[in-house]
C-alpha cells in the first residue's frame, strides 16, 4: 500500500475516504504540537518562564550531580557550584541566598568552653542554632542538647535530655552537648568517601553532596554529634537564614549527614557562633586557641576544665569548666 508522501489531510481524504480516522489523528497530533510550540513560546515570552526554567533547572541539577568533592575542587569549581546552588534556590523556592566558600583564616584554631556553673537551661542557644543553621523543623532536629543534671553526677548519660518545665530547677545544673570538633575525630576516619573532614581551623565539616548516607560516621561518634536527614528537611522560606556557607548552613537534602560546624558561615567572618551570641547567661566561650589573648585561652589557663570521655583519646576542642 502506498503512503502518500504528502501528509496533507485534505489530499488523503479525497483519495482514500476510509482512512479519515487515521488522518484525523495525525492531523490532531500535528496541530497539538503546533499549539504546544506556540503555547510554550507564549509562556516564555509572556506570562512566566516556567518551561525555560524547568529546562535550566534540569541542566543545573545534572551538573550538580556530577560535581566532585568540595575538598578537591578548584576555586573556579567552587564558584561554579555556588552559582548553581544560588540559582537553584531561586528557581525552586524563589529565595535569594548568598553562599560563601570562604576558606579558613590562617593562624586560627577554634575552641569552645562551656560554663557548667552558669548555664540555667533556657535553651536560647538551641533555638538560635536551629534558626541560624536552617535545621529541619519537621523532625525538630537540634545540634545542641541541654541535659538537666542532678548534683553528684557529671556525665550527660545520667541527666535528663528532654525536660519541658520551668528552669532553672533548684539543686540542678545544666550541661550542653554538641559536636566537640575532636582533634582526632573517629567520624572522619570512618567515612568511606572522605565526605567529612577536619578543616585547618579545626572545624569538622561534611560535604553534604558527597555524602552517600551510609551513617558509619554516626556509629563512630562517641558523643552523638551527628544528625541524619531521614526525609527532606523542611524550613519555611520566611525563616530561612539566607547568608550561607557551602560547608555550613546551606540546605541539606534527604539521605545526607549533617552536624554542628561552629557556625562556619559566621565564625570565618569573625563573628561568634549563634549559640554563643544567644546565650543569656554567658556560659558559652568561643575563640581562637592559637591566640594567647583570647577568652578561650584565659579559661583554659585559669579555670579547672574537663572534657567528656577523655579515655577515648578523641581530643575534643570543647571543654567544660566550673566557676
Amino acid at each position: 500500500m502506498k503512503q502518500p508522501k504528502n501528509n496533507d489531510c485534505q489530499n488523503q481524504k479525497e483519495n482514500k475516504p476510509g482512512r479519515t480516522k487515521k488522518c484525523g489523528r495525525r492531523d490532531f497530533l500535528k496541530g497539538a504540537a503546533k499549539v504546544a510550540a506556540m503555547g510554550s513560546f507564549a509562556m516564555v515570552s509572556g506570562c512566566g518562564s516556567e518551561l525555560l526554567a524547568s529546562g535550566e533547572k534540569r541542566k543545573l541539577q545534572w551538573e550538580e550531580f556530577f560535581k566532585t568533592n568540595y575538598r578537591i575542587m578548584t576555586q573556579q569549581e567552587k564558584d561554579a557550584t555556588i552559582a548553581r546552588l544560588e540559582r537553584l534556590a531561586k528557581i525552586k523556592k524563589d529565595v535569594n541566598i548568598q553562599m560563601s566558600s570562604k576558606a579558613p583564616i590562617p593562624g586560627v584554631l577554634y575552641g569552645y568552653a562551656f560554663n557548667v556553673t552558669r548555664c540555667e537551661g533556657f535553651m536560647e542557644c538551641v533555638s538560635a542554632c536551629v534558626k541560624e543553621n536552617n535545621l529541619d523543623r519537621k523532625s525538630k532536629t537540634q545540634y545542641i542538647r541541654i541535659f538537666e543534671m542532678e548534683p553528684g553526677k557529671m556525665a550527660p548519660e545520667s541527666g535528663n535530655g528532654k525536660y519541658f518545665h520551668e528552669v532553672p530547677v533548684k539543686d540542678h545544673f545544666y550541661m550542653g552537648v554538641q559536636c566537640y570538633h575532636c582533634d582526632n575525630p573517629p567520624c572522619v576516619k570512618a567515612c568511606p568517601t572522605q565526605a567529612t573532614w577536619k578543616e585547618p581551623d579545626g572545624i569538622v565539616v561534611v560535604d553534604y553532596n558527597w555524602c552517600i548516607g551510609c551513617r558509619y560516621c554516626m556509629a563512630a561518634c562517641p558523643y552523638y554529634g551527628r544528625r541524619f536527614n531521614w526525609h527532606d528537611p523542611v524550613v519555611p522560606v520566611k525563616e530561612m537564614t539566607k547568608k550561607q556557607h557551602y560547608l555550613g548552613n546551606r540546605m541539606r537534602a534527604r539521605g545526607q549527614m549533617e552536624k554542628c560546624t561552629f557556625c562556619v558561615q559566621r565564625t570565618r567572618e569573625g563573628r561568634l557562633p549563634a549559640c554563643v551570641e544567644a546565650c543569656p547567661t554567658g556560659s558559652r566561650v568561643f575563640g581562637n586557641l592559637l591566640d594567647p589573648k583570647s577568652e578561650i585561652r584565659f579559661v583554659l589557663k585559669n579555670k579547672k576544665v574537663f572534657r567528656l570521655k577523655e579515655e577515648l583519646a578523641t581530643d575534643p576542642k570543647f571543654w567544660y569548666f566550673i566557676d
Binding site: K189, A190, P192, T193, N209, I212, C214, N229, G255
Partner: peptide
C-alpha cells in the same frame, strides 16, 4: 544508603575511596 545514586563516589578514579582509613 541514604543516597544510593551517589554510590559512584566510592569508585576510585571518578570518586574517592577512603582506603585504608575507613
Amino acid at each position: 544508603l541514604g543516597g544510593p545514586l551517589n554510590a559512584w563516589h566510592l569508585i576510585p578514579g571518578i570518586g574517592i575511596l577512603n582506603f585504608p582509613s575507613s
